Computed example of a mutant assay.
Amino acid sequence: MSDTKTLPAALRGWAERETGSIAEARDASHPRQNSRVWELVRADGCRFYLKVSPTARTYERETFALRHAAPALGAGRAPHLRASSAEHLALLTTAVPGRPAGELPLTAAEEYEAHRQGGLLLARLHAAGDLTGHWRAEAEGALDTAAHGVHRHLDEAGDRLTEAERSLVRGLADQLRRVGPLPLGFIHGDARPRNLLWSGHAAWIDFERSRFAPVVQDFVTLASGVWADRPRLRTACLGGYGRELTPQEHHVLKCLAGLAAVSALTRGEDHGDPYVAARGRRTLHRLMTGVFA
């Protein structure tokens, strides 16, 4: 967390009209330039979070998710939206109990249960929302959209990739264009241990990348990260989810992981985040050597 972001007076005034007088505003931003989040504490100890979305699109996505999909997770399993401001691109939510699962000293059994419940909640989320009209069209076109972006990602990566890696990723993108119908739903969009809170009960936060899409897209970050090191957490998550991925979904997962790896490698190196860059490099290596599972 950063100590440098002070809550602007206009935002504080807007929040206090919704929550009452704020005794303390603590910076709770992630360590990146466009993250602006504050924990607000009233004198009675009641806590809220105020988030300024980085773009209008992420504001619209998170607002929609918190209004129409996240309530399906159940009380205390996702933030409750108290208010939103299109003028400020701001969302005011209740605080959810717990801390990120990836930051807690959990026992093996506790970690397993956190990821099992996380998978259960993703199943509820994927079944939420009204998948009709333009939402269905967007979901059905999501893989084509991902494949179309491969050239931009490869251009941004430049000489960070070998020609063999570039050829691999182009091939994976081409395969996405030939995939048949997949299970669709409302996805979280950034399902990772950082956004999975644990307090004895699991909860998901940070819905700014949520959207209607093939549900397999919600497992790309997990498969490229924590599942690679601890495959038992894959078992836990999909056990809670209620089913294994189909062979076609597993193939799509590999294709999407390749595209995401190039993006992570570039983003991590450009923004001084060695962890993200290393995750991208490792995923590419796993795909090149045929051990991605």
Rank of each mutant, 00 (worst) to 15 (best):
A25E: 00
T107V: 00
A236T: 02
P247I: 06
R82P: 00
G141H: 14
E165I: 00
T132L: 11
L154Q: 11
A293C: 12
T289Y: 12
L253M: 13
L7G: 02
P100R: 05
R152K: 14
A43M: 01
K51V: 01
C46E: 04
D190L: 11
G185N: 11
N34Q: 13
R192H: 15
P181G: 06
R243A: 08
A28H: 15
D44K: 10
L7T: 02
A236P: 02
E62V: 05
A277F: 09
T63Y: 06
R57G: 13
G185E: 00
H250F: 13
L81W: 10
G158W: 09
S29D: 06
R267E: 15
A264G: 03
A127L: 08
R124F: 04
R47C: 11
F48Q: 03
L284V: 06
L222K: 05
K254G: 14
S85G: 04
P71L: 06
E39T: 09
R166V: 08
L176W: 09
P274W: 04
D3K: 12
E87K: 04
Q33R: 15
A278M: 03
D159E: 15
A147Q: 04
H88R: 09
V252M: 07
M288L: 14
H134E: 15
G76D: 09
E156V: 12
G119H: 02
E18T: 12
S210H: 09
T58C: 05
V41I: 08
G290A: 09
E244A: 14
A139H: 07
L197M: 05
R17L: 10
Y275D: 15
Q33A: 10
E163K: 11
V262S: 05
S35F: 04
H151D: 15
R282M: 09
L66S: 06
L50C: 04
G129T: 05
H285D: 15
P8R: 08
G20K: 11
S263F: 13
K254V: 06
L245P: 04
K5H: 13
R232E: 14
A108I: 02
Q117L: 03
G200T: 00
R61T: 02
E111L: 14
E165H: 06
C46F: 07
A213L: 03
G272F: 13
M1S: 14
G240Q: 01
D144W: 03
R116T: 05
H250K: 11
T289W: 04
W204I: 09
S167D: 14
A228G: 09
T289L: 01
G180T: 07
A10I: 05
V276N: 01
R267T: 15
G13D: 11
L284H: 07
L11Y: 09
A293R: 13
A69L: 00
S84M: 04
S224L: 03
A86E: 12
E60K: 13
P214S: 10
G189D: 08
V179G: 02
T63M: 13
A137R: 14
A28E: 11
V220W: 04
S167V: 04
L233R: 11
A228E: 09
A95V: 08
S224M: 14
L73W: 01
F48R: 02
H126L: 06
E103I: 00
R166K: 13
M288H: 02
I187R: 02
R152P: 01
